[in-house]
Design a protein around this nucleic acid. Sequence first.
DNA 1: AAGACGAAAGTGGTTGA
DNA 2: TCAACAACTTTCGTCTT
Length: 309
Amino acid sequence: MVKKPKKCPECKSTTLISDKDRGELVCKDCGLVIEERMVDFGQEWREFENTQQSRRRTGAPMTYTRYDRGLGTDIGQKGDIFQLQGKGMNKFMRLRKWQHRISTAIERNLKLALAELKRVASFLKLPAAVEEEAAKIYTLAVQRGLVRGRSMESVVAGALYAACRRHEIPRTLDELSEASGIEKKEVGRTYRFVTRELGIRILPSNPVDYIPRFASALKLSAETQSKSVEILEMAEKADLTSGRGPTGIAAASLYVAALTNDEKRTQREVADVAGVTEVTIRNRYKELFNKLNLKDKMKKPEPKKVEEE
DNA sequence: AAGACGAAAGTGGTTGA
DNA sequence: TCAACAACTTTCGTCTT
């Protein structure tokens, strides 16, 4: 969900009015519309009769993954169900032409972008909820003009990355980069930009979230997996996790867990699936070893003593 | 020969003046 | 806006199995 801004970005006023009917968040002082088409959790049906039970709805559910939220109606092609003659046909064609013109630049952009989003999301096998969230983020970004000056694809990738993080099924920047064909740093940049501008708050990603995926990529047993989660928790307590790349920590704990469970994987294998280098794994691994005294639980490898200055 | 290890130099991002 | 800084990567040489 998008966090509502506390202040008006224009005049810094904190008195904001939420207009539920129009789905807008408006600054009381300067009248700036801060948020358009907010998600409205109120009932979305209207009731004209006095009875309590008839809450009928029709049509497909509203969704952000369609550029018109699944609500669009097209004026049909010539030769549709209705056969019109002469004047009727002229009027019909005029209407069609107008509808075409009315599809604004924003809608056309959205249409393209959401197609791209769908492609990338299915490439990464992301659940529909994530895709929906990403679509919503992208829609908001377009409304705020954040796409200007950046490629549509990179914003799509950024939105997807953010949506993954919010659903606690993080993908690495590398994976998104590969799926979208956007450079890794570009994805990261637009991701940061978009989340900052939209005020989306994202928890620092938790290394634990990466474990199941990495473990299955390495074909590690369930015991090893839970072992590495244990290690992660210990690392958390020992304050080894803050400020470090979460993937590096996840990879190291997985590596250690695999060693202790006789399911040894090489550092390179682990490094590859986690998208970090062996060196990073080694560093994390060394830290885990020294600060967590895992020594008693380990079999043979006994890293050399590191003298501190 | 392959994997593990570590040192040194380089990269991109954050932070604080 | 710039410099300092931490985390991470790349590269390369050495050691171990």
